[in-house]
Amino acid sequence: MLLILKAKLAAKAALVVAPLAVAAAGYGLPAIPADQVAVTTIAPGAFLHRLAGDFALNGRPVNAPRRAFRFTRPLTIMTYQVSAAAYDACVAAGACERRLFRAAASAEAPAVGVNWHDATAYATWFSSRTGARWRLPTDAEWAFAAGARFNDDAVLADDGSDSFSKRWLAKYEQESSRQAPADKAPRPAGAFGFNEHGVADIAGNVWEWTDTCFLRQALDASGEPTGERTVNCGVRVVEGEHRSYVTDFVRDARAGGCAVGVPPANLGFRLVRDDAGYLGAAVARARFHMRWI
């Protein structure tokens, strides 16, 4: 699965790494010192997090289980979403594809109209610009950084009393009662304020790509996974005012990234920095993914 896209990304990444200094210099862009990127570091800790994906019990959809997640290292995340100007520098360097709605936003507003591949390409490019390792957060990392601004997407009215349709209707009700952001135009960085960790613009009008793939898993009566799972990495978890699942090549989810109700107004992203280095990060992520299994 995803072989073509993966191969393409790899090719892109390889292209980017070598001629970077030249390209950057050509556009008058000096390398960015790592300490000049506004980041927020969140102390290690644990929290309860509802997993992303579709879960079923005896074939009936149920709310995703909540799991305890423990972060043993500090989580360093960009304080602000990646700006239009920052993203366009990657485009100018030939390492990122052009985003949608280029005229709509000011350079200081977040970059929107980007898909998961764009965000991933930016992370690769930005890593080589700064000499640090940057990547998209996982869904759980994003939620940890979002703190009190994270909105649980459990279907509250679902009491399990009907095979299928009651939950479906309740979900519809819940999703369609969401308020669309009054103004969909991206606003200057910080306009939506800071959360308790000091992270800006969480759950504003720009949704953020995460690296977490769509998951489908059957649960047994005790809530433990049973049987084979499906991981569809063609669909990634997008986080914001509510959680959404968006096909990785979609740059504009407004025509229906969610099943019903209010879709994400804009698609943007921010990155986390792996201070443990490449290998450490890979190991940490592998462990991280396996923790709840």
Binding site: R50, N58, R60, P65, A154, D159, G160, D220, S222
Partner: peptide
Amino acid sequence: MFTRRTMMAAAALAT
């Protein structure tokens, strides 16, 4: 809230 108890109830019902 999603507790183990509601899960078990749902399981019993579904069966």
